[in-house]
Measured scan of single mutants.
Amino acid sequence: KELVLVLYDYQEKSPREVTVKKGDILTLLNSTNKDWWKVEVDDRQGFIPAAYLKKL
C-alpha cells in the first residue's frame, strides 16, 4: 500500500472529499487522476487535491 503526506490543511467542500491536516500520513487508494487523489482517512474514503499531497 502506498502512503502520502499531507502538505497543507484541507477542508472538504463536498461529500466526496475528506478533511485532512498538514502532516497527516494517509493511505493512497488511487492517483490515476492528476488533479484529485483518492485517500483513506479514519475508515473514510474520499478525494483531496493532488497538489496537497506528496507520495512517500
Rank of each mutant, 00 (worst) to 15 (best):
K1S: 11
K1Q: 13
K1V: 13
K1M: 12
K1D: 11
E2V: 13
E2A: 11
E2M: 11
E2H: 11
E2K: 09
L3H: 11
L3P: 04
V4I: 05
V4G: 04
V4W: 06
L5F: 07
L5V: 12
L5P: 00
L5S: 04
V6K: 00
V6W: 00
V6N: 00
L7K: 05
L7N: 02
L7F: 02
L7I: 08
L7T: 04
Y8I: 09
Y8S: 11
Y8D: 10
D9E: 05
D9R: 02
D9H: 06
D9Q: 03
D9C: 05
D9T: 05
Y10F: 06
Y10E: 01
Y10A: 00
Y10K: 00
Q11G: 08
Q11T: 14
Q11W: 15
E12I: 09
E12N: 06
E12M: 14
E12Y: 06
K13R: 14
K13S: 11
K13H: 09
K13Q: 13
S14Q: 08
S14G: 14
S14T: 13
S14E: 09
S14D: 13
S14I: 04
P15I: 10
P15Q: 11
P15S: 13
P15G: 09
P15N: 11
P15M: 08
P15L: 12
R16G: 15
R16I: 13
R16M: 13
R16V: 09
R16P: 06
R16Y: 14
E17W: 04
E17H: 05
E17Q: 11
E17Y: 04
E17M: 05
E17N: 06
E17S: 06
V18L: 14
V18D: 01
V18Q: 02
T19I: 03
T19Q: 04
V20Q: 01
V20E: 00
V20K: 00
V20I: 05
K21F: 09
K21V: 08
K21A: 09
K22Y: 05
G23S: 03
G23I: 00
D24M: 15
D24A: 12
D24E: 12
D24Q: 15
I25G: 00
I25A: 02
I25R: 05
L26V: 13
L28T: 01
L29W: 04
L29S: 03
L29N: 02
L29A: 04
L29R: 03
L29C: 07
L29M: 08
L29F: 03
S31P: 05
S31L: 04
S31I: 06
S31K: 07
S31R: 07
T32E: 15
T32V: 11
T32G: 10
N33S: 10
N33F: 09
N33A: 09
K34G: 10
K34Y: 08
K34V: 12
K34P: 15
K34N: 12
K34C: 11
D35M: 13
D35T: 12
D35K: 11
D35I: 13
D35C: 11
W36F: 07
W36C: 09
W36H: 04
W36I: 04
W36D: 02
W36A: 03
W37K: 01
K38G: 06
K38R: 10
K38A: 09
V39E: 00
V39T: 01
V39R: 00
E40R: 09
E40K: 10
E40N: 06
E40A: 10
V41K: 15
V41S: 11
V41H: 13
V41F: 11
V41W: 07
V41G: 07
D42F: 14
D42L: 14
D42P: 07
D42S: 13
D43T: 12
D43P: 03
D43Y: 13
R44L: 06
R44M: 07
R44Q: 07
Q45W: 09
Q45L: 07
Q45C: 10
Q45H: 10
G46P: 03
G46E: 05
G46H: 07
G46I: 12
G46Q: 05
G46N: 03
F47Q: 03
F47I: 08
F47P: 00
F47Y: 15
F47S: 03
I48R: 00
I48Q: 00
I48E: 00
P49Q: 04
P49H: 04
P49V: 02
P49W: 03
P49N: 04
P49Y: 03
A50M: 05
A50K: 08
A51R: 15
A51W: 13
A51G: 13
Y52T: 07
Y52M: 10
Y52C: 13
L53Y: 00
L53H: 00
L53N: 00
L53W: 00
L53Q: 01
L53S: 04
L53K: 00
K54C: 15
K54D: 07
K54S: 11
K55P: 09
K55C: 10
K55I: 12
L56K: 03
L56C: 10
L56P: 02
